[in-house]
């Protein structure tokens, strides 16, 4: 094809990589170059993710309590003892972990499900051009763009019992409730947490689904309309099937992010969440740094990772099988 690049001034010059240049236009054989290009990324990933993770797995086998944390090479090896403690539902630590796990499962299912529904709804409704569409699109993406702590701290203010907007609307303006409920302690704290989470999460679903919708050719809709398909029929027969690849990835990513969510409860409740909203990441964090028992903390983290891997593997198997059947 025609090119606008100016011819190299010195023909046959050597490459900047220090190796003699091969004949121009021919692909280098087994070159080291891709590995060199990858090296920084690999080194960083190893140093910050992979090695600490392996160290974490090792830590989970040690009695790494506050007495050994300064000199962790001296921590005694205790095998699976930490796991026995945290997975034993009859022990205090195990019972708390199980409760936190339950809360997290319900939280994740509701938050991901509702965020997906909102994201799909908004994306589908914004699919066709109309006046104000660009403004709405920007508005809907704003919660995703906001730094998590500013968004969540604002919600903390909204949920204040005496000075917050939520009680002002529910009690003073709509008179739906007689008493001013507490939102950040007790049963309601779960509801508050869920609302904040959905507010922050659904824009990401919206963004991804919007991107996915752009890949659906208009002809499909035109053909469906010719067949007399109404809105729901088009949604079920064209939009959702075409979005399937996007949704498969999106739901998995949302599941993992939400299940590991630390920021929302940490900022919303100012460090320590009430039992009803004690998500698992925050639970592990708090029990580790309160007691300085990193051994059981690591054991809980590894157990969490294994659970997530199991769910992910099951999900991928299931969705792949269905794709092959179809």
């Amino acid at each position: 094809m025609a090119t606008t690049t100016t011819p190299a001034a010195t023909p046959g010059r050597t490459k900047g990589t220090g190796k003699p240049a091969g004949p121009p236009g021919r692909r280098p054989r087994r070159s080291l170059l891709p590995y060199l290009l990858l090296a920084p990324a690999v080194v960083l990933e190893l140093a910050i993710h992979v090695i600490p993770m392996l160290v974490g797995a090792w830590m989970s086998l040690l009695e790494l309590t506050q007495f050994h944390i300064r000199d962790w090479s001296g921590a005694p090896f205790v095998g699976l003892d930490n796991y026995r403690v945290v997975l034993d539902v009859n022990s205090a630590a195990g019972a708390e972990l199980l409760r936190s796990f339950r809360v997290t499962v319900i939280y994740t299912v509701l938050s991901v499900g509702l965020s997906w529904v909102l994201g799909t709804t908004a994306a589908v409704l914004l699919q066709r051009p109309f006046r104000g569409r660009a403004v709405l699109r920007a508005l809907f993406l704003t919660p995703y763009a906001l730094p998590v702590y500013t968004a969540v701290i604002t919600w903390t203010f909204l949920f204040q019992r005496d000075t917050g907007l939520v009680n002002h609307v529910l009690v003073d303006q709509l008179n739906l409730l007689d008493d001013r409920p507490f939102w950040l302690i007790g049963d309601n704290s779960f509801v508050a947490l869920l609302i904040v989470s959905i507010w922050r999460t659904w824009p990401f679903a919206f963004l991804c689904i919007m991107a996915g919708l752009q890949n659906i050719p208009d002809e499909l809709y035109e053909a469906a309309a010719m067949d007399g398909a109404g809105f729901w029929r088009r949604l079920r027969a064209v939009t959702l099937p075409m979005l399937r690849p996007v949704n498969l990835v999106l739901l998995l990513v949302l599941f993992l992010w939400t299940f590991n969510d630390f920021n929302t409860p940490y900022v919303l409740f100012g460090g320590s969440a009430p039992a009803e909203a004690d998500l698992i990441s925050l639970h592990i964090y708090r029990s580790s740094f309160q007691t300085w028992d990193f051994g059981t903390g690591s054991a809980m983290s590894v157990a969490l990772l294994l659970f997530l891997l199991l769910v992910t593997a099951g999900y991928l198997l299931l969705t792949n099988r269905r794709r092959n059947d179809a």
Partner: peptide, 28 residues
């Protein structure tokens, strides 16, 4: 190149791991 697929999958999957899992060791 050899390992291209492995690299892509590994890198993306580290994104999904619970942050708390490498927070404790990284801190130490």
């Amino acid at each position: 190149f050899r390992g291209r697929q492995v690299f892509s999958v590994t890198v993306l999957s580290t994104q999904m791991f619970p942050g708390i899992l490498f927070l404790l060791p990284l801190f130490l």
